[in-house]
Design a protein around this nucleic acid. Sequence first.
DNA 1: ATGCGCATGTAATGTGTTACATGATTAC
DNA 2: GTAATCATGTAACACATTACATGCGCAT
Lengths: 182, 182
Amino acid sequence: MSLRIALLGTLAHHGPASGYELAKRFDASVNFVWQAKHSQIYPELAKMAQTGAVTVEDAGGGRGRKIYTITDAGREEIVQWVSGEDPYRSVRNESGLRGFLVTLLPPDEAAAVMRAEEARHTASLNGLLWLKEDVAARTTPGSPSFGQYALDLGLRTTRMLQQWAADTAEDLERRAGTEHTP
Amino acid sequence: MSLRIALLGTLAHHGPASGYELAKRFDASVNFVWQAKHSQIYPELAKMAQTGAVTVEDAGGGRGRKIYTITDAGREEIVQWVSGEDPYRSVRNESGLRGFLVTLLPPDEAAAVMRAEEARHTASLNGLLWLKEDVAARTTPGSPSFGQYALDLGLRTTRMLQQWAADTAEDLERRAGTEHTP
DNA sequence: ATGCGCATGTAATGTGTTACATGATTAC
DNA sequence: GTAATCATGTAACACATTACATGCGCAT
């Protein structure tokens, strides 16, 4: 369900697109909250076309390129989902899982793992900051602006993760230093 | 793979447990980074017993209760995974996805959705703070302390999400106020 | 005896990943 | 001509959720 909604949202925000374009947009925006490969996106688009959430039209380019456009029914689906009262929130955070397990390594090795995570987060933070400038440059100030809140969330999440990795690494390094090597 | 590792990690941190206990521990700790239902946990434990990552022993209670214990091979699997160089980090954040889509609602409705999210995060933050006190009370100060970094990550994540929901709601409310109703 | 919490599992279905397969257009 | 990028799809497999099914022990 969530993938379907995420795709509809992307179509609603940025307008009609081909499956390929959609996959790239996905990578460049929703990516830090939801991920999907093209092999999952294509069948989902076909399914949505059948149920009337999107319309398809054939276009040139590549091997039979298709453009998908969201319908009113599709928009209605988004509204229903967003304002829905389902209390369950699915969560998956592989970086966080590492944090759970890192204490099982000796402090010095654990610290190295966390420094690597920190570097990874720094890199994606730079990517997001670049994206933000890019979006700001193309947006009229004061307008609703696509994915503004989501981008903000992405920045906050990445900064938090980076900071956590750095603090954890520091703590582990301190421990490794004061350790009585057995 | 990640579920397997998360289960092994839970066994390594808290010691031997039955599938049922493990499922509850999972809910109470790893929950905010990884989720799993008992129907996924039981078969995975059976599989791990076959490959020698854990050992099983039968115990009383219920309908044939079984206790699982991590082996050295299981610990080695964790170490390999944590220090592994796989750059892919799977992410799934349904709360975040809502943030992406909320701008598709009229500002006042969107604000209400975000206020509801904020309340949800406040509730889970309280749960984590309670958990933290509970853990602190049972842990010797200065010791490595199980899942310390992960709990810290949980607190930071939840606080960040709560703050983001509040800020977003505020912004949306401001917009709803200054709006020229069409 | 009725319901609740402990306890374990399976079956059907849905979602997601990896690998395979194909072909057009553009730049060098 | 050949490599990269655009472009779409399927098949096999792995992972996850929902629903079904069972049974013990304890409290009311």
